[in-house]
Design a protein around this nucleic acid. Structure first.
Length: 279
DNA sequence: CTCAGTGTTCAGTG
DNA sequence: TCACTGAACACTGA
């Protein structure tokens, strides 16, 4: 679930349920991996009785501003997310893995918050690569202070962006994935952006012309902006996006325009690209 | 049973 | 020191 658009969408959900309310219940699982060196007791102590003043995000991290520090930071890793009960009635017992119907709390829940108005919020993480941290001032402390510009709201000016790109020697795809460069970009966004900018993912960032870097910036703005606008609902991504065809691996995968898709490894990640279009 | 994966970190290398 | 690479991490689902 977790690139910038998914995190932003989760953030909106959290804001809807939590903003302005007091936390009256904290149920934290004892998971030392998800709770980075923070015991469930400390999480509970930090959150219980606090009022949520604001919900902020930078890149793939988001955090709650409370009426008292420290504040919790959430990162979804590869398979984390936030959930609220569907409908009004809450079943406390899930009835089997299959079959439709509400289940609460969801599978892989690591944290459940209850709010004064009865609202509920569950934080899940199936693969346990996500993290929940406590910081006195999240924006100025690692890991968030180490992030680059936010790919949705912090895009640098064209001139600045071109400069940032041309001073780096990594493959352009690896640079896009570097969170200290563009915070929030993940594997599929990087591929989509490069496809739309018609740039070979293996190209060294330094080798991009000003025109190419400009194209890259616009593609980044468009892909992230569009994905956020549709609430990260991939069914609503434009049909022209590589996203819909990139997993037709094996052989003969084609884009909407009939272009052949190839898969290679760049920056340590599986990369889908279209050699006839990207140079 | 094996392996890829919408991510990050860290040891190792140049 | 900086920058980059690749393996490790952890676990589900195909």
């Amino acid at each position: 679930m977790p690139e910038l658009p998914e995190v932003e969408t989760g953030c909106l959900l959290v804001r809807r349920v939590a903003a302005g309310r007091r936390i009256v219940g904290v149920d934290a699982s004892a998971d030392p991996i998800v709770f980075e060196r923070v015991s469930p007791e400390r999480i509970r102590k930090a959150l219980l009785g606090r009022r949520v003043k604001a919900v902020r995000r930078h890149g793939k991290h988001f955090w709650l501003e409370l009426d008292q520090r420290p504040w919790p930071i959430f990162h979804f890793g590869m398979a984390g997310g936030v959930h609220v009960p569907r409908r009004r009635s809450v079943r406390l017992v899930s009835h089997g893995d299959k079959g439709p119907g509400p289940a609460w709390p969801p599978r892989f829940t690591k944290l459940v918050l209850t709010f004064e108005d009865g609202g509920l919020l569950a934080v899940t993480d199936a693969r346990r690569l996500g993290r929940i941290r406590l910081r006195m001032d999240p924006a100025t402390e690692p890991p968030i202070s180490l992030l680059g510009f936010d790919a949705l709201r912090g895009l640098p000016s064209p001139a600045h962006f071109i400069g940032l790109v041309q001073e780096r020697g990594a493959p352009i795809k690896a640079l896009l994935l570097d969170q200290s460069f563009s915070a929030g970009v993940g594997n599929w966004i990087a591929d989509e952006v490069l496809y739309r900018a018609r740039i070979d993912p293996r190209r060294r960032a330094r080798s991009l012309s000003a025109a190419e870097a400009r194209r890259l910036r616009l593609a980044l703005r468009d892909v992230v902006g569009t994905a956020v606008r549709v609430r990260a609902d991939s069914d609503r991504f434009p049909r022209t996006w590589l996203f819909h065809y990139r997993w037709g691996k094996q052989m003969g995968a084609l884009t909407a325009r009939g272009e052949a898709i190839r898969h290679i490894t760049v920056g340590g990640r599986t990369t889908a690209w279209v050699p006839t279009v990207q140079h």
